[in-house]
């Protein structure tokens, strides 16, 4: 049970695809102009990631090693087409905003990366958990970036006015440069938090050793 939890949680922080591994950057930067767009893109990516990881894990013994990458791509492309069509039929406006980046989930490195590094070797249940963790990691990452950029750029969060309408908003944050700035600063902040966590852990470890020595002495 413990290992299942670890497999699930690693995608949410330690191996966070967007902020730690920096893969799948294109949709991350392009669609996070608003919180809702980031959330939608995250969920679409999660759907494709979970379905294709499970499918690849189920078929791992059938697929010959030499042609595995094309096989994975076809599986992924099939699920992307499903996501594309469902979004186009049910949420036409959202589909229009996300536009090109829905079909581009096919070439999102996260999906092929998990397929190659994880789903092609592990049992179905673990692949499912791993994909779900990674997918939710992407979803919170994209939503967070969307919230920050929408708040700074338009003074709203999920379309609700937060700052008074008279406040000057920094439009640059919903334009392309803002995407790079926000992500750069978030990556830096996350590193800083991890340094602090590691330091505290080390201090606690050394602290317990000295206490132990004191007891023995």
């Amino acid at each position: 049970m413990n290992s299942v939890r670890r497999e699930f949680l690693k995608g949410l922080w330690d191996e966070h695809p967007t902020f730690r591994l920096l893969i799948g950057m294109c949709p991350t930067l392009a669609v996070t102009t608003a919180a809702a767009n980031g959330l939608a893109m995250g969920l679409a990516t999660t759907f494709v990631l979970v379905c294709s990881s499970v499918m690849i894990s189920l078929m791992k013994n059938l697929i010959p090693k030499k042609v595995r990458i094309p096989c994975y791509i076809i599986i992924v492309a099939t699920f992307v087409t499903i996501a594309d069509m469902v979004l186009a039929a049910n949420f036409p406006e959202l589909h229009k905003v996300l536009g090109l980046f829905i079909p581009l989930i096919v070439v999102n490195c996260i999906i092929l990366g998990r397929a190659e590094a994880y789903a092609s070797k592990m049992p179905v249940f673990y692949s499912f958990i791993d994909a779900l963790g990674m997918g939710l990691g992407i979803t919170w990452g994209l939503t967070f970036l969307g919230v920050v950029r929408e708040f700074l750029g338009m003074g709203t969060v999920f379309g609700a006015q937060i700052l008074p309408a008279t406040a000057t908003s920094w439009v640059i944050f919903i334009l392309p440069p803002g995407a790079f700035f926000t992500l750069g600063i978030v990556v830096g902040a996350m590193n800083q938090i991890n340094y602090a966590l590691a330091r505290r852990k080390r201090e606690r470890a050394t602290g317990s050793i000295t206490a132990h020595q004191a007891v023995q002495g």
């Binding site: 790079f180 992500l183 750069g184 600063i185 990556v187 590193n191 340094y195």
Partner: peptide
């Protein structure tokens, strides 16, 4: 700054 080395500063430069 140490936290921005690598990817962080590259992204800000790209911005």
């Amino acid at each position: 700054p140490k936290a921005l080395q690598g990817a962080g500063i590259a992204l800000i430069t790209a911005g």
